[in-house]
Amino acid sequence: MLAAPAQGQTLRLATWDPGLTRDGPGLLLRDIERDDPQVLAAAQVIAALRPDAILLTGLDWDLDGRALAAFADLLKAQGHPLPHRHAGPPNRGVQTGHDLDGDGRAGQPRDAQGYGAFTGQSGLALLSRLPIASVTDHTAVLWRDMPGHRMPDGPHADVQRLSSSAHWDIALTTPAGPLHLLAMAATPPAFEPRNIARNHDEAAFWLDHLPDAPFAVIGNLNLDPVDGDGDPAALAALLAVTQDPEPRGAWQPPQTGPNADHQGDPALDTAEYDRPPGNLRLDYILPAQGLRVIDAGVLWPAPGDPLAEAVALASHRKLVWVDLDLE
């Protein structure tokens, strides 16, 4: 059963990759305006959870913000207005002009600052009930300029940015004062040799940028601490300065096939794959140690639940939520 929505001094944060990305620019807006079933399912899921603020880690960005505005209108029509939003340009699809992956061809998706077939594909967006006081955007930081980075040697260090999508410090105005959301969506530690190092460094970046104020690291870290590929050292370091509410789903599919040899708790999984490496925990909300967590969960309903069909239709990723007591 879904927990009650946040009230009073309780703040409900959420993060989710809702699958609101398409194969070309403008196609997401087209589908929103056509009442595409997958888009409507994503809106239904968010409206059912009723977050006070949600970071979407898979929504195509456009210069005028038309797709995000149209999706916000869908949420309002479903009875859950989130009037404040931020969606700066991500690195995904922004071409570097270089052959970054060394395949002999420039201008391909892997030659962009972050993987993408067009500028803004599968970007980040924040929707909030609370006003946004400020945004500090670290998206343009060069990978080589990060202290202690693991960037492999190569000829393009002078152009390669750290963020595969974006790094934002978004300060929300709450009744208890500002709350900083340290938002990100990291590259998966797969597909290219450099991606393990980049995935690690994208998470480790926040260790040198923690605000002197209440905060929560939020988004798609694209790393399971136990199963799958990747180096969990940066995640472990983040957990040393935050707290892990360990959001759990109400249901998990049978742990067979690619899940059979997993060592992690399947209730913590947030991504569903029917091929290796199987289901993984990839999405996180890690509040600062001084914040009081009331409840947390992964929105993964059992078959037959009224929301199960919409959750399955919207995305293979599952929404993660955390309730904080700000009093």
Rank of each mutant, 00 (worst) to 15 (best):
G8I: 01
Q9R: 15
R12L: 07
A14Y: 09
D17Y: 14
G19E: 04
D23Y: 10
D23S: 15
R34I: 02
R34V: 04
A41N: 00
A41M: 01
A43E: 02
A47K: 10
P51E: 12
A53H: 06
A70K: 06
A72N: 02
D73W: 07
D73G: 02
L74G: 10
L74M: 13
L75G: 05
K76R: 15
G79A: 14
P81V: 12
P83R: 13
H84T: 03
P90E: 05
N91C: 09
G93C: 05
T96K: 08
H98C: 08
G102V: 07
A106I: 09
A106F: 06
P109Q: 14
R110G: 09
D111Y: 13
G114L: 09
G114W: 11
A117I: 02
G120H: 03
G123E: 00
A125H: 01
L126F: 06
S128P: 03
L130N: 01
T136A: 14
D137F: 10
T139W: 09
L142A: 04
L142T: 04
L142G: 00
W143Y: 13
R144P: 08
D145M: 03
M146W: 13
M146I: 15
G148K: 11
H149Q: 14
H149M: 06
D153Y: 11
G154R: 07
P155G: 01
H156R: 05
A157I: 03
A157V: 07
V159M: 08
L162S: 07
S165H: 12
S165V: 15
A166N: 04
H167S: 06
A171C: 11
L172K: 01
G177L: 07
P189F: 11
P189D: 04
A190R: 12
F191W: 15
E192P: 01
E192F: 11
P193C: 02
N195L: 08
D201W: 13
D201M: 13
A204T: 00
L210D: 05
L210S: 10
P214C: 10
F215K: 04
F215L: 09
D224T: 00
P232A: 08
A234P: 00
L238P: 02
A240P: 06
T242S: 09
D244S: 06
P245E: 02
P247Y: 13
P247H: 10
R248L: 00
G249S: 06
P254E: 12
G257D: 15
N259F: 07
D261H: 12
H262Y: 09
G264Y: 08
D269G: 00
E272F: 12
D274C: 12
R275A: 09
G278F: 10
N279Q: 13
L282V: 03
Y284N: 03
I285P: 05
G290C: 08
R292A: 13
P301R: 01
A302E: 15
A302D: 06
L307E: 07
A314K: 07
L319E: 00
D323G: 01
D323F: 09
D325E: 15
E327V: 12
